[in-house]
């Protein structure tokens, strides 16, 4: 099978955007940036009144239970799911082909499945200063009580739409449009310089 090309590689990127430690990292980098490259990124959307059935379908396929409430989500490290809009969910799997697993589960009566595996790029920022760096981009509250582990948020940085899931106490997965990914990655590296960052 042909390998998918990431928008972040194999571009002739500047050295500071490549693997290694950069910026003010003498005391150890305070954030780690990486591209997680999940095989599947899906958007699932329920018709009004069908939300519970869709959530049940997500559970059936992924094994992930979705807590109640707007923006709620969960992750097991391999698969992740979170709500990003009323009745709408992003489901992510390390493996490719998740879309076919939903084929018989999310019927047209429940809602729709849209495959965005190529169309979104997943960037992970982790480390003690992850909240600090993200606060430079997004006008949402990243503090743990306001943004619990597993939860998702839809927001934007200028024209760059982003869905953000907190996948750890100091770890966030950011899903951006593929076409914006390189530009956003550069900005993320730039903003991380003062705390020191490592690209993995």
């Amino acid at each position: 099978m042909v390998e998918r090309q990431s928008p972040l590689e194999p571009a002739p990127l500047e050295p500071e955007l490549r693997t290694g430690s950069h910026g003010d990292f003498e005391h150890g980098p305070d954030v780690i940036l990486s591209e997680t490259r999940p095989g599947s990124i899906l958007q699932l959307a329920a018709w009004p009144g069908q939300e519970k059935n869709l959530i049940a379908g997500i559970h059936t396929v992924t094994g992930l239970a979705l807590p109640d409430g707007a923006g709620a989500g969960s992750t097991d490290g391999v698969r992740s799911v979170f709500g990003f809009a009323p009745g709408k969910f992003t489901v992510v799997d390390e493996a490719e082909g998740l879309v076919s697993a939903f084929a018989g589960v999310v019927t047209p009566a429940i809602g729709t499945v849209t495959d965005l595996s190529h169309g979104r790029t997943a960037i992970r920022i982790a480390g003690p200063k992850a909240e600090w760096v993200l606060a430079k981009f997004f006008a949402i509250d990243f503090a743990l009580p306001a943004f619990p582990v597993g939860a998702g948020r839809s927001t934007m940085h200028h024209d760059v739409f982003a869905q953000i899931q907190r996948t750890g106490a100091d770890q966030f997965d950011i899903y951006v449009f593929r076409s914006f990914a390189r530009s956003f990655w550069k900005a993320l590296c730039h903003a991380s310089e003062e705390v020191g960052y490592e690209v993995q």
């Binding site: 009004p48 009144g49 939300e51 109640d68 409430g69 707007a70 923006g71 709500g83 009323p86 009745g87």
Partner: peptide, 15 residues
Amino acid sequence: AFARGDHKVAARHKA
């Protein structure tokens, strides 16, 4: 309020 009357999702700030 949602323009759609049929969004029944529990709102986070209310929850």
